Computed example of a mutant assay.
Amino acid sequence: MLEKFKRLLAGPLVPPFMGKGPYLWLLSLNFLFWKYLGGLPSPFEAAMLALSLLVFLPLYFATFWLYDRRVVLLIAGMFCLGAAWAPYNFGAGTFIIFGCAACAAFEKSRHGYLMLALVLAAALGFAGATGLPRGFIVSIMAVGVPVGIASIMDGRLRRFNMQLLRKQEEVEHMARIAERERISRDLHDLLGHTLSLIAIKAELAGRLLERDTAATAREIKDIETTARHALAEVRSAVSGYRQTGFVQELAQARAALAAADVQLEADVQSFAMPATAENVLALALREAVTNILRHASATRCQVSVRQEGGQIVCHISDDGRAPVDREALARGNGLRGMRERVAAAGGRLTLNAGSGLSLELYLPMGAVA
């Protein structure tokens, strides 16, 4: 408890989000001085009053930082100050009313109401036992009950708002993580595919350099065009506005595979496709082609897209080498990103490795952008 008080003295007296209200509430202590409107207190009484205020203020400010059982001692201290001054100063009930307001520090409202009832019952019992004037207990009941209830309700609302704020911060944090993952997936697909294509075309240009300078120039021009296109797509991916059309991606895949002497056989039905599903399929095709160019040593790639009921079914396969470590392939960034995109669109992905690698994607037609 002493360590808590030390930290209180080192920092703000009340939580910043509460504003200046708690300081203004201290103006209620003016009731303690009504008694002295007709004459000044004796030096001893003035000293005791100053000492009481010095004891009360740390108790009061601590109620804004301590919760539940730890605040019981603070309320008891305020009650004791009120009880000690009650026989000599009618305004001493203010200390007890502040104790009623401190019941808002309980996390559970029912505990706050229970504490409020105990404070009021103790005040009633003390007034009866000491023969205090009826006006003393009436003033405490008339002011302490509404102040205590209002404070408990306000504390409950404040805690609810804080929980809501924390949830909003958590949602924002998760959104930032999701955005970083999206950029990571998109950059992996973009750069992996493009760099593989550039490497193949550069190798082809090297072989043609001495035999066909015109063909070499065309390949170098293609490398430049591909690099500029990749740069534009990277910028779009970081901005979050990249949408890839499947037909366009299929044409790029055909060109990339042709440069590696891989024949592409495509069977794509013509039907209206949701934008999200089309983007997922395009990126899946790009990743599959990148894997073929890098690892498969294939001569033929087959792509089919058809509509079956309420689903879009996409099949991508090759006749290259099947990966030896299938689990490592499934854990790779490309396939993991593909699975995440398909799952986010409400679909599923199956992977089969036989004489080559086969991917099958199922996406709902109801996927929306």
Rank of each mutant, 00 (worst) to 15 (best):
C100Q: 09
C100L: 08
A101K: 00
A102E: 06
A102N: 03
A102M: 07
C103I: 05
F106H: 02
E107V: 04
K108H: 10
K108P: 06
K108R: 14
S109E: 13
R110T: 12
Y113I: 08
L114T: 15
L114C: 13
L116M: 03
L118C: 15
L118D: 11
L118N: 07
V119R: 05
A121G: 09
L124I: 08
G125F: 03
G125K: 03
G125L: 13
G125S: 10
F126G: 12
F126E: 11
F126D: 09
A127G: 03
A129D: 03
T130M: 13
T130W: 14
L132A: 11
L132G: 05
L132R: 03
P133C: 04
P133G: 13
R134A: 07
R134Q: 06
R134Y: 07
F136Y: 15
I140G: 05
M141K: 00
M141Q: 01
M141T: 04
A142N: 00
G144K: 02
V145C: 06
P146T: 02
P146A: 05
V147A: 00
V147P: 00
G148K: 01
I149E: 13
I149Q: 07
A150E: 05
S151K: 07
M153R: 10
D154N: 12
G155V: 06
R156L: 07
R156Q: 11
R156G: 06
L157H: 14
R158Y: 06
R158C: 07
R159S: 12
R159W: 08
F160G: 12
F160T: 14
F160V: 10
L164D: 12
K167N: 15
Q168A: 14
Q168W: 12
Q168G: 14
E169D: 11
V171C: 13
V171H: 14
E172S: 11
M174D: 15
M174T: 14
M174S: 11
A175R: 15
A175I: 07
A175W: 11
R176S: 15
R176H: 14
I177P: 05
A178M: 09
E179P: 10
R180Q: 15
E181G: 10
R182H: 09
I183T: 11
S184R: 13
L191K: 08
G192W: 00
H193L: 11
T194C: 08
L195E: 02
L197Y: 02
L197D: 03
I198T: 11
I200L: 13
I200N: 14
I200Q: 12
K201I: 01
A202K: 00
A202I: 01
E203K: 10
L204Y: 03
L204A: 08
L204M: 04
G206R: 00
D212V: 02
D212Y: 03
T213V: 05
T213L: 08
A214H: 06
A214V: 08
A215D: 06
T216A: 13
A217P: 01
A217R: 08
R218P: 01
E219D: 05
E219W: 10
E219T: 01
I223G: 05
E224C: 08
E224Q: 15
T225P: 04
R228F: 06
H229Q: 09
H229T: 09
L231W: 11
L231F: 09
A232G: 10
A232D: 15
E233C: 13
R235Y: 12
S236N: 10
V238I: 14
V238S: 13
S239N: 11
S239H: 09
S239A: 12
G240C: 08
G240S: 09
Y241S: 15
R242T: 07
Q243H: 09
T244G: 11
